[in-house]
Design a binder for these strands. Structure first.
Length: 488
RNA sequence: GACAAGGUGGCUGAAUGGUUAAGGCGAUGGAUUGCAAAUCCAUAUUGUAUGAGUUCGAAUCUCAUCCUUGUCUCCA
């Protein structure tokens, strides 16, 4: 266990304030994150949430916690809006494309995994699917029924919100009052199955046309959307676990219902620390497929989109996200990504210098204080932007040493190498750029640079600059320094 | 309409009562260079949406106004 683990604080959405983090079981952390609904390509906003919690997971591991990280795949039960008459989203898509529902699920699950790999996000320890846990969900409904917090109606089962609210506050996470919710609810046709408009479905009875359905004690049907997370999180992490993460948009009703379901079944609140990632915007406006103000990860990486001047490496996008706090909104613009790209290059350059530095008899900076600042930043509610700022202090120091204008002892150098790499690669998840692995290019470059060096020694600037400019056009930057010429 | 989170320099984005408001990018000057690039040093943008208030002291707390983002529940 890292000594810094004692000082971790987390902003708990439930309390609305930062709290010292104390796990249920010392040394262990249960982390659950609401995963994607796999009925279309994962969009950039979803990616940000998953990347944010990837960073959280990575830092917990870095602190020495034994973390069980669970992130679900929603492959059933998520319903669309009024116009679609309550049809299952995945079933609807299947009919349009003449595919089996599970074919859709497979296609977009693979897409999701591929994008997460590109962003260098570590796969969760368990990635359960809703369809794989129908039995667990049915059992959970039985328990809630037995405890008197739900009722059966016409082959469906609904959660009795008003009954629950008599003993537990419904709306405590999202800051809503049940009276306001009731007065704001529209009276819709066909709600006769429910006793009250506020009640939400635990089990929904399926029509004949419905494609994804299962037998249950209440008839053929499918589970309510909020139920899967309750069933799967508690199955793998226990009735009460440490951290539940997700996007801000899921706070209400999804997470509110999870609290209610968990509490109604076990008597204890299921989650100790609720964490919510914020949304991202594109050029200051929300991303929306319908208005065309939308961009997919692949379009960002390939440059085939109307918003960005050029393609961006997934690591640049990740670095850009790490420069903003997970709890704040983030605006995607071409200018901002171009700036992030340059900053990221500066950071990775410094890291490559780090291994080649020479140690001296003294350190001109307090390296331990620098390293402590990395931990202080992350311990303050995972403040990655401050960590990045502190890493740039280290970058400046490393470059100064590299220039011979600053010094570092062998002991400090070893410490700085270890911690800078740990925080950049392991915690922020910024992996070293994978070079093309073109073995033939290196000897060619050696030859070209040798020719240029000969030209320079002969003061043949025309030839040397022709080589430099030609390489620049080919995307290769030549860098001259005292030690010689390098390229990338 | 209700509830929630926000509005910070040219761009991006930290900091929630306490000296000169972090960092990245961009800009300017200097060192370095054959000239550049990269790197280092220095500087500036006279910056906290608008208006009022609380306080010895406000980006931070209160009220109002304008704007942005999220949610308002599965509903034959």
């Amino acid at each position: 266990m890292n000594a810094h683990a004692e000082n971790l604080t987390i902003y708990n959405s439930l309390k609305g304030e930062k709290e010292k983090f104390t796990p249920v079981k010392e040394g262990f952390v249960g982390l659950y994150v609401c995963g994607p609904t796999v009925y279309s390509n994962v969009h950039l906003g979803n990616c940000r949430t998953f990347i944010s919690f990837d960073m959280v997971y990575r830092y917990l591991v870095h602190l020495g916690f034994k973390v069980r990280y669970v992130r679900n795949i929603t492959d059933v039960g998520h319903l669309v809006d009024d116009a679609d008459q309550g049809e299952d989203k995945i079933a609807k898509k299947a009919r349009l494309e003449q595919l089996e529902p599970m074919e859709i699920v497979q296609q977009y699950t693979l897409d999701f995994h591929q994008v997460m790999n590109q962003f260098n996000a570590i796969a969760p320890n368990i990635e359960p699917t809703a369809t794989g846990h129908i039995i667990e969900q049915i059992e959970l409904i039985k328990t809630i029924l037995d405890n008197g917090f739900a009722y059966e109606s016409n082959g469906s089962v609904y959660f009795d919100v008003e009954k629950y609210n008599e003993t537990h506050p419904y709306g405590e996470l999202s800051g809503r009052k049940i009276e306001d919710l009731i007065s704001n609810t529209r009276e819709l046709d066909g709600q006769s199955e429910k006793r009250a408009p506020l009640d939400f479905a635990l089990w929904k009875n399926a029509s004949a046309e419905h494609l994804m359905k299962w037998p249950s004690p209440w008839g053929i049907g499918f589970p309510g959307w909020h139920l899967e997370c309750s069933a799967m999180s508690t199955k793998y992490l226990g009735d009460q676990f440490d951290i539940h993460g997700g996007g801000m948009d899921l706070k209400f009703p999804h997470h509110e219902c999870e609290i209610a379901q968990g509490t109604a079944s076990t008597g204890v609140a299921p989650v100790r620390y609720w964490m919510h990632g914020n949304m991202l915007t594109l050029n200051g406006q929300k991303m929306s497929k319908s208005t065309g103000n939308s961009i997919l990860p692949d379009e960002l990486f390939s440059g085939e989109n109307e918003f960005m001047e050029k393609p961006f490496d997934p690591m640049v996008v990740r670095f850009f996200m790490m420069q903003a706090h997970y709890g704040s909104t983030l605006d995607f613009t071409s200018d901002a990504l171009l700036a992030a790209e340059k900053g990221y290059m500066r950071l990775t350059e410094a890291l490559s210098h780090l291994d080649k530095l020479n140690a001296g008899s003294e350190s001109s900076q307090d390296v331990q204080a620098l390293v402590d600042s990395f931990y202080a930043a992350m311990n303050d509610n995972f403040n990655a932007p401050i960590l990045v700022a502190n890493l740039f202090d280290a970058v400046k120091y490393v470059n100064s040493i590299n220039d011979g204008k600053a010094s570092i002892t062998a002991t400090d150098l070893e410490l700085l190498q270890r911690e800078m790499k740990a925080f950049t690669h392991d915690v922020l998840g910024l992996s070293p750029a994978v070079s093309g692995g073109d073995d033939k290019l290196a000897p060619v470059m050696d030859l070209v640079l040798e020719l240029r060096q000969e030209a320079r020694e002969n003061k043949d600037w025309g030839t040397s600059d022709k080589i430099r400019d030609g390489l620049a056009n080919a995307g290769i930057t030549v860098k001259d320094s005292k030690e010689g010429t390098s390229w990338n």
